[in-house]
Design a binder for these strands. Structure first.
Length: 802
DNA sequence: AGCACGCCGACT
DNA sequence: GTCGGCGTGCTC
């Protein structure tokens, strides 16, 4: 007898351990560790992951595994082990960890149905509900307001039974394929016999005579410009046949990727790549920090490292931040490695995502390029892991399990004994500090590919503009520079940092700001729909005409949305042709690319946008980059505010003068003297690093201290305060004396969706027992969490302090 | 999480 | 006496 240890699909901390199940004889040979199974659990039937197969169990009455859901395991042994580690590290549940590693469609779907076992004894209303059928769904019973007492009675008497159904949502896409039903020469004979006026049929047949292979019906129709009907006629004549085949959904079906070959490496690229190659060759786990300025050719270093890995028969994972995962980026990898590449990003439909994942699972690809969760690609012979733009915050998952892709990468690198490469022009302070300490190997690429200089940066003091009577949001110098580019038929990128900034509405008479009734936040004005929306819940109302407090009609918007910037810009420079890119204009699928194409084809001279235009864009004729308001980000309540500002400014500046024409950057700010602004304008990362490290040291922030953020929320403010206070007291008592506990303090946004939010923060150097203590605290509040709607979120090394 | 079991008040 | 409300505790 063999026993399977199963992690079951019940998201509760009481269930957060394995359950033993007997493996029925018929499954003994089939069942492998890492497969999904359906199992009886109490009165129900649910899904579970087989974690381990052992000979015996201590449990007295074992139930049997009911069915196997997969032919091949969905989790490798490595991922099973990694999932456990991740759950422990992030204090989350095993089931959550495993599900985070898999495409969504592999999550089980549960259904209940009621089966009728006898016809006679049923009550009239139940009989009516069945209406002659043997099964009805439980949903149907509920929708028709079925009587639970009757149901329960019938169940007890055995007139009916309830079946629990576990379904996997995964589906394969099927496509219709057309093939010849007879040999080629027979088709030729048939061709002559076709009626003279059956032009289209002739054409289709001719196609097969010259291309005697199977083809997808859709493509055939396209090629011969015909209809399904014509093909159907040929099928009926017995000349062709159709089959339904599983196909992969191809998100890049209509894209041609021009194939590229390895470029000659520059001296500095060669210096950077050699240690990586050495590490690949020697199966040596080492973390590299590739610090390369924008345009220094980091991607080529990645590509040629991967090439080496593939030659050795191994696989590669490349992580790219979500917003940088544009077709341009994909093109570089598909161009070099062709069909060996799978792409995973959030723009894919769940089905497409599953198909890409399947290609990895079946080892049909060697390289995966993707956003955060691609770090879990089920490769088994990893040769390298690359994280591009490693400082990006999107590598941290902001929901359970709150993992950071970098930490997962290091774990997998260690497991596979392969290098991990972290690349960035502006590395995270922690990473650079580690590189300096020798924990990571630092690789520097300090000059740009074509020996071009970074574009000069001019800082404009907006206070002076105001003193000079300029009340617009564009400095005189910026306006002049833009006009100048338009004249020369060159292009401009205008960057508006909207974080911490949004268009709110205020009454000029009484100063009342329109706020969300359930969140502690001002509503944002959306001009396109003429509505006021809350960005934290889905509350929205039509734009107000008069103040609710004083009935004044003096209502004014404040803040600067991209819409407003566009309008004011057109007032100052009426001849400007502007492409605006923000969440509103890029929501629809494909809108992103469309807007970029317009700009690319020079049908516009100004690209105006938010965060999303800071990265990766590369246009030949962009010679001016304008940053409209640096300050909003600097002043966020976040110890990383200055670092994020520095990163962003450096990145945006890199958009100008990437080709033949020289570029220029203009930064407008009210804090001209701030070191992040000053040093970003000089492209001096090293100096910035030293300065910021000083700050972190004196304020006890990372990398000198680690942080843990505990966030408590509940609809009752007193309750939240009380719990948070208790938690900090417990932490103080049980953590070592070296740890500091900040708080409880109200979160920067005190109320979201009618829930009050308080937090406390642990600053520490070394607390090996921390996780255990926090687990106990969570245990202590278990009942409150389960029954009283209390929420306690724990975030180790947080990136988002809101 | 879901579901059964069990204990107590309300009502035929 | 029985129905149904919810609090409690278990699920290999």
């Amino acid at each position: 007898m063999s026993v399977a240890k199963v992690v079951v699909d019940v998201p509760s901390s009481q269930i957060n351990h394995t359950f033993d199940y007997k493996i029925p004889e018929k499954y003994e040979a089939l069942l492998k560790v890492g497969m999904r199974v359906t199992i009886p659990f109490g009165p129900r039937k649910i899904m579970g992951f087989v974690i381990e197969i052992v000979p015996t169990s201590d449990v007295k009455r074992l139930k049997e595994i009911e069915a196997i859901m997969d032919i091949t395991p969905v989790l490798t042994k490595e991922l099973l082990q990694l999932g456990k580690w991740m759950a422990d590290q992030t204090v989350s549940l095993y089931i959550q960890a495993y599900q985070a590693m898999l495409p969504r469609v592999l999550k089980a779907k549960y259904k209940k149905e009621i089966e009728k076992l006898t016809d006679i004894e049923l009550t009239a209303s139940l009989k009516q509900m069945f209406a002659g059928r043997d099964f009805i769904t439980f949903e149907e019973f509920e929708e028709n307001k079925g009587n639970y007492a009757e149901l329960l009675h019938a169940l007890k008497e055995g007139y009916i039974q309830i079946n629990y159904i576990v379904e996997s949502k995964e589906t394969s896409k099927k496509a219709l394929f057309i093939d010849m039903a007879k040999e080629q020469h027979l088709l030729e004979e048939a061709f002559i016999d076709l009626p003279k006026n059956a032009k289209k049929q002739q054409e289709v047949l001719q196609y097969f005579i010259s291309n005697p292979t199977e083809i997808e019906q859709k493509k055939l129709i396209e090629k011969c410009k015909t209809t399904p009907h014509t093909i159907q006629l040929l099928i009926e004549k017995g000349l062709l046949k159709k089959t339904l085949k599983k196909v992969y959904r191809d998100p890049f079906a209509n894209t041609n990727f021009q194939s590229t070959t390895a470029l000659q490496l520059s001296e500095q690229q060669r210096k950077a790549i050699e240690p990586i190659w050495k590490s690949i060759d020697n199966n040596y786990n080492e973390t590299f920090l590739l610090h390369g300025v924008t345009g220094s050719g980091k991607t080529e270093v990645y590509l040629q490292s991967i090439e080496k890995v593939i030659k050795l028969g191994k696989e590669a994972i490349v992580l790219v931040p979500e917003i940088a995962l544009t077709p341009q980026m994909v093109k570089r990898f598909k161009g070099r490695f062709g069909d060996d590449v799978a792409v995973l990003h959030s723009g894919l439909s769940p089905g497409e995502r599953f198909d890409e994942w399947t290609k990895i699972q079946k080892k049909e690809v060697k390289v995966v390029v993707g956003a955060r969760s691609a770090i879990f690609a089920p490769f088994e012979k990893l040769g390298i892991i690359i994280i591009d733009e490693e400082h990006e915050t999107s590598y941290k998952q902001e929901e359970q399990p709150r993992y950071h892709a970098r930490e997962i990468a290091k774990y997998r690198g260690e497991y596979h004994q392969c290098p991990v490469v972290l690349g960035s022009a502006t590395p995270l302070l922690e990473s650079f500090a580690r590189a300096k300490k020798g924990v990571y190997t630092l690789l520097e690429m300090t000059s740009r590919m074509n020996e071009q200089q970074m574009p000069p940066v001019k800082i404009i003091d907006m206070r002076e503009e105001l003193h000079a009577g300029n009340r617009t949001m564009f400095s005189r110098e910026l306006v002049q520079a833009i006009k100048n580019r338009i004249e020369r038929n060159e292009q401009v990128v205008l960057f508006l940092n909207r974080r911490g900034h949004s268009t709110f509405v205020m009454c000029r008479e009484c100063g009342d700001v329109v706020k969300c009734p359930s969140c502690d936040i001002a509503l944002t004005y959306h001009k396109s729909s003429y509505q006021l929306k809350c960005h934290y819940c889905d509350y929205q109302i039509p734009m107000i005409q008069e103040c609710k407090e004083c009935q004044s009609k003096q209502i004014q918007y404040f803040g600067t949305g991209t819409q407003k910037v566009e309008e004011s810009l057109l007032e100052v420079i009426p001849e400007a042709k502007i492409v605006r890119m923000d969440v509103d204009t890029t929501r629809r699928k494909g809108a992103h690319e469309k807007l970029l194409t317009i700009f690319q084809e020079k049908r516009a001279n100004i690209l105006l946008g938010t965060q999303m235009i800071a990265k990766g864009l590369d246009f030949e004729d962009v010679t001016l980059v304008g940053v409209l308001a640096v300050d909003s980000m600097l002043n966020l309540p976040d110890f990383r505010a200055s670092e994020k500002t520095f990163q962003l400014l450096t990145q945006v500046s890199g958009r100008a003068g990437r080709h033949k024409l020289p570029g220029e950057v203009i930064m407008q700010t009210y804090s001209t003297e701030h070191y992040a602004v000053q040093l970003a304008s000089q492209y001096n990362y090293e100096q910035y690093f030293l300065h910021e490290m000083q700050m972190r040291k004196s304020f006890h922030y990372p990398p000198y201290y680690y942080l843990t953020l505990i966030n408590v929320s509940h609809q009752d403010e007193l309750k939240v305060q009380e719990v948070t206070k208790m938690i900090s007291r417990l932490l103080l008592k049980h953590l070592s004396g070296d740890a500091t506990i900040l708080g409880p303090t109200p979160s920067p946004i005190v109320r979201i969706n009618n829930r009050y939010r308080y937090q406390c923060m642990i600053k520490y150097k070394d607390e090996p027992n921390q996780r255990e203590i926090i687990r106990k605290i969570l245990q202590y509040y278990h009942d409150d969490i389960q029954k009283n709607n209390l929420m306690i979120q724990v975030d180790f090394e947080p990136y988002q302090l809101m």
